[in-house]
């Protein structure tokens, strides 16, 4: 796939290079004699102050892509077999490991789903927050602790001064996720990757945490990559969306457009298969079949065995991610679809 030509416009709003750009990324996992093709040519970009939601089910490659960006892929067995990742104009995959380590935490940071297992249970949260400053900025223990309290205030943990010496298990799930956010924000990075940051939280707490994250992002003008399977969360916070399936991006679109007029049968199927809160629906539309097996991705379009519209070409030719045009033939900004029949899907 000659993805460079077909990728959506990569330039930022003012024509400069985007904050982060992933080009034709391929990642494989080799376990004994089987190869799992987790990422098979992903292209996406994020600008400063922008939120990109990467939407996909388990096995779609959304988290693996993020790990490749952060440089925390388990390798072996994971291996980047092809592609480039540009961060602030620099191809970070070609950097030596010690250079990449300096990027992590300082200029790009990650928030994980499970805050409890991401925090060290035997160290106080204040110490763990302060460690960022001691490791990257060489602050003293006392200065670091003051910074930790400031951060905890910032993510609105009540009574930060009293709680700075508490251990992770003494905080509730929502508070722990705030601590994770504080840790990610500590060095004011330019890019934050949040991998299912609210999936483990209750609905009312989820809303608090998502709001906090969005607010801090605006304040610091950071780029945010939000990885999620939840179409509701995406609609609430994203600017643009990349939908992944079997290690590829099948559709990209600005958030409003995607929900109004999806241009890929998978996206459409997902939207139709979730029940609504504000009305009692009829029988749900169900995408047939199973999520793909990454060791045996079907030939042609990976979605073809589950697609109601699949025709012969879908079983043989891998569809490229091509720009989506309106009725009058003009390109719809930010929109692309990897479906041979995107026109029918968009208009049908």
């Amino acid at each position: 796939m000659t993805s460079l030509e077909t990728a959506p416009a990569n330039a930022g709003p003012d024509g400069t290079a985007p904050l982060l750009e992933v080009r034709d990324l391929h990642v494989e996992f080799k376990v004994r004699d089987s190869v799992t093709k987790a990422v098979n040519g992903v292209n996406y970009s994020v600008n400063a102050g922008e939120t990109l939601a990467v939407l996909g089910e388990s096995g779609s490659g959304k988290s693996v892509t993020a790990q490749a960006i952060m440089g925390i892929l388990d390798s072996p067995p994971g291996r980047i077999t092809k592609g480039q990742i540009f961060f602030q104009g620099q191809d970070i995959l070609s950097l030596p490991e010690n250079e990449r380590r300096k990027l992590r935490g300082a200029r790009m940071a990650m928030i994980f789903q499970d805050a409890l297992s991401s925090l060290n249970p035997v160290l106080s949260v204040g110490f763990q927050l302060g460690e960022m400053f001691r490791a990257h900025q060489g602050l003293t223990r006392k200065e670091a602790k003051a910074k930790a309290i400031e951060l905890m205030d910032r993510v609105r943990i009540p009574a930060a001064r009293q709680r700075v010496n508490d251990y992770p298990h003494q905080f509730s799930g929502g508070m722990r996720q705030r601590i994770m956010i504080a840790m990610a924000l500590a060095l004011e990075p330019d890019l934050i990757i949040a991998d299912e940051p609210t999936t483990a939280l209750d609905v009312t707490v989820q809303a608090q945490v998502m709001d906090l994250l969005a607010e801090l992002q605006r304040e610091y003008n950071m780029g945010l990559i939000l990885i999620t399977h939840d179409l509701g969360v995406v609609a609430d916070v994203a600017d643009k969306i990349a939908v992944m399936y079997a290690g590829r991006i099948v559709e990209t679109a600005p958030v409003h457009e995607l929900y109004k007029r999806p241009a890929h049968p998978y996206t459409r199927g997902l939207l139709d298969s979730i029940p609504r809160l504000d009305q009692k629906g009829q029988e749900l539309y169900a995408i047939k079949g199973l999520p793909p097996n990454l060791q045996q991705i079907p030939p042609g379009c990976a979605f073809n065995p589950r697609c109601a519209q699949a025709r012969d070409i879908c079983r043989t030719d891998v569809p490229a991610l091509v720009p989506v045009t309106g009725e009058d033939g003009t390109e719809l900004p930010g929109r692309a679809s990897a479906c041979h029949f995107w026109k029918e899907t968009l208009r049908g």
């Binding site: 096995g59 988290s63 388990d74 999520p291």
Partner: peptide, 19 residues
């Protein structure tokens, strides 16, 4: 394999299950 275990909990089915 992290994606397969950290996601919503559904690893790719064993090959046998798809035939």
């Amino acid at each position: 394999m992290t994606e397969l275990v950290t996601g919503t909990g559904e690893p790719a089915p064993a090959p046998a299950a798809t035939q």
